[in-house]
Amino acid sequence: MGKLKYALFTGCTAKQSTPEQMMSTMAVAKKLDIELIELTEASCCGASHLQDYDDFLSLVLNARNIAYAEKHELTMVTICNTCQLNTAMTKHRLDNNAELKAKVNEKLAEVGLEYKGTSLVTHFLYAIIDDFGLDKIKEMVVKPLNRFNIAPFYGCHNIRPSELQNESHKKKENPYNPTSLDDLIIACGGVNVDYEEKNKCCGFHVELQAPHTAAVLSGTAIAGATDQNADMMVTPCPLCHLKLDTQTKHSSEAIGREVSLPVLHMQQMIGLALGCTSEELGLKHHVTEVGFA
């Protein structure tokens, strides 16, 4: 296998509210000898909110982001579930609708760009599973996480709608019984925790307009993991991470029960198992203390 190389779409939170996600992505890529070319020209994906306001604009902007990955002739790797959804959905719609693609390209031509449809778009989790391989991760583990019960929190926008999501990666994921993150936990030597909320919604997207709904959903998820003896949660999505890590006070109030668990980004969990330091993984940036590393 030659050296793996991807175009990295960091998304917005990696540069702002989840700096630890950016740090751990780069640290893990270095350990795995994966080359990530950051798409510094990329804009926000619209986070499925711009899509509520101006669908066409969101298509043009996301097509522009993919066009930059195409310029590098690389697969685009995302590190946020919502970036993944919006980018993959744009790709799907343009690749299946020549008229729409032409309209979008008419706009992109104004800035000298073209969306061709030649780059794949996949989340880092699936790039690792499909291209790098969990067996290889397993071999590289120097600090197995076998003391820990780890609860996977998949995040909606990596597993639903499954038809779209399964276009983006080789290993098919069942939205009702997803296994990718469980498999990754096991590869890192951890004990995967099964609980009802692992494939449910964290509520992040309505945190401003429906704070009670959002807090009940995140609180229920943390409680579900806690009740199955989880020591920590792990997620591939920085938005789920923000909801589960920073909002525990609201979540606890909403469900009438004190809940709080350390939440790792998927990259941090891999990094810990591969021997990265807590500084390299940015563990100090968590609001809910990660006390074990």
Binding site: C12, T13, K15, Q16, S17, E41, A42, S43, C44, G46, A47, H49, L50, D52, Y53, D54, L57, L61
Partner: peptide, 16 residues
Amino acid sequence: AVGFKNSIEKHGVLDE
């Protein structure tokens, strides 16, 4: 929803 457009127009990325 509208705030995303404003932010993208100003910074490209979202200003959280």
